[in-house]
């Protein structure tokens, strides 16, 4: 029953969020700040995770495919396709659900319990739209760039394995990541990331907006935001994959 109530509340909240702002000027003042906070400030973690995962994936793929029948470029190919299809969109979004989701939920939740949202409502401001729309818009716009960046850095991580070890030669790796490249995979990955970015930001905002109580409850809202957006990401991953790759 709760899941239906929450879904209904979420839909009603989104109806208030996804409307024209009261003042575009205020929206465009907030929007760049959110681009910086949600997008640019996520770059360091995206770089660190992607480069390590790219490198680890290359090593593991190589070690698990030691077979003279397999072509030498197969390690690069598998690493590339795994990064493109799954890691740089889904896994990255699951990680960002933790960082961005908890950030959004705790920020809006704190505003709720300190009556700042009530203050906006009393002024006659559409608080949901004012607070949430810039976050969703900024994160949805930044996410494809983060995904592309993650793909590039992840592939570089694999290349570094070739440079600093003798597990694979750089020539084999470079051949592998170029072999039988399907550009549609990048498109598929970007479509997924747009959906996930919307889910992460809107679900986190929902839990923050309806936080009730004190600091402990903001913590709970933040946890719920991360857990539920992660589950939704996995569910929509299956759905989109079925639709786009099947």
């Amino acid at each position: 029953m709760n899941i239906f109530q929450d879904t209904g509340k979420y839909v009603l909240l989104m109806r208030r969020v996804l409307v024209q702002p009261d003042r575009w000027r205020m929206f465009f003042r907030q929007f760049p700040k959110e681009l910086e906070k949600l997008g640019l400030q996520s770059l360091p973690i995206v770089i660190i995770i992607s480069v390590f995962i790219g490198a680890i994936m290359t090593i593991q793929t190589k070690l698990n495919t030691e077979n003279p029948l397999l072509p030498t470029y197969s390690t690069g190919l598998v690493t590339r396709d795994t990064l493109l299809l799954e890691f740089s969109s889904t896994i990255l979004c699951l990680i960002l659900a933790g960082k961005i989701g908890s950030n959004i939920a705790s920020e809006i939740g704190t505003m709720r319990i300190t009556e700042q949202i009530d203050a906006l409502e009393i002024m006659g401001v559409n608080s949901a739209n004012f607070l949430i729309l810039p976050k969703i818009a900024a994160f949805v716009i930044m996410m494809p760039f983060l995904v592309i960046f993650s793909m590039a850095v992840g592939l570089s991580g694999g290349y570094l394995v070739g440079v600093f070890s003798d597990i694979i030669t750089t020539a084999d790796y470079l051949l592998g990541i170029q072999y039988a490249f399907i550009p549609y995979y990048v498109f598929y990955s970007l479509v997924k990331s747009l959906v996930f970015a919307f889910l992460i930001s809107s679900v986190a905002a929902f839990y923050g907006y309806y936080a009730v109580g004190g600091a402990l409850d903001v913590g709970k809202a933040s946890t719920n935001a991360v857990v539920n957006s992660s589950i939704l990401i996995l569910f929509f991953n299956l759905l989109i994959t079925n639709l786009m790759l099947n």
Binding site: T110, M111, T114, E115, Q116, D118, A119, I122
Partner: peptide, 10 residues
Amino acid sequence: MLFQGSALFD
């Protein structure tokens, strides 16, 4: 409206 905790925007 003046709120109990002031409710100023942080």
